[in-house]
Nucleic acid binder design. Structure first.
Lengths: 112, 112
DNA sequence: TCCTTGTTTCGACGACTGTCGAGACAGAGG
DNA sequence: CCTCTGTCTCGACAGTCGTCGAAACAAGGA
């Protein structure tokens, strides 16, 4: 379902964002606009194999389990990560397409 | 000048963000994480000449002047735009370097 | 079966944010 | 000088967000 039309990647310099697209993109940026979530995403993205389990993420911060779980849920709702359970542990990995969408929007000089 | 230092543009896949850098980047993404601000930035970036005055931005939304001014202030504090007064009107333009920084962070496959 | 460990959901609290109206400041022109 | 227009600051209010403790759910092992 995530087939992206040409409009998905047009940069800011192209034409003004309409309200609907702005709302979707803002949801993603809002998820990124929190230091803990940004670090969580970076931890997952840079982890060996491209995925990390919650148990490895919790110890990095001085935060309780529920708080980490909450932030992971926000990142999941924004479409930035995806998690699946394998046995006891749940492993999270990034959604590259979604990140590319954000990166392209902010790229003022698209690859020509 | 199109080549940046290694630290400023290292993508998420490189190494985990430290708390300080995450805080600065999160400030910028938080500014982008609001539909009105995202549309304001897009209006400025896509405007003829690369700059737009507040009077042209206010009419687009069903919001009062103070509210638009507040959002512009947040974008300014995040380093995303810059405004200078010329006579009666104040013109805003984007800060390309800052946008490039964000775009590069989210780019999972940097130009190799 | 019960117990232990990993993860999420629920309910609550303080802090922050978006919005407004009223007023202040800046510049242009009588 | 005064006035008008454009923009910002201030103070206040409702709504949202990050955080926690307690409890629930899921899977594995005694």
């Amino acid at each position: 379902m995530s087939k992206q039309g040409p409009a998905c990647c047009s940069p800011l310099t192209g034409e003004p964002l309409d309200a609907e697209r702005a709302a979707d993109l803002a949801r993603m940026f809002k998820a990124l606009g929190e230091p803990v979530r940004l670090r969580l995403l970076s931890l997952i993205a840079s982890h060996e194999g491209g995925e990390a389990c919650v148990c490895e993420l919790t110890g990095v911060f001085d935060l309780t389990g529920p708080t980490i779980s909450h932030h992971l849920k926000v990142l999941r709702a924004a479409g930035l990560i995806r998690g699946d359970r394998r046995g006891t542990w749940i492993y999270y990995r990034v959604e590259p397409e979604r990140l590319r969408q954000a990166s392209a929007l902010l790229d003022l000089q698209p690859a020509s």
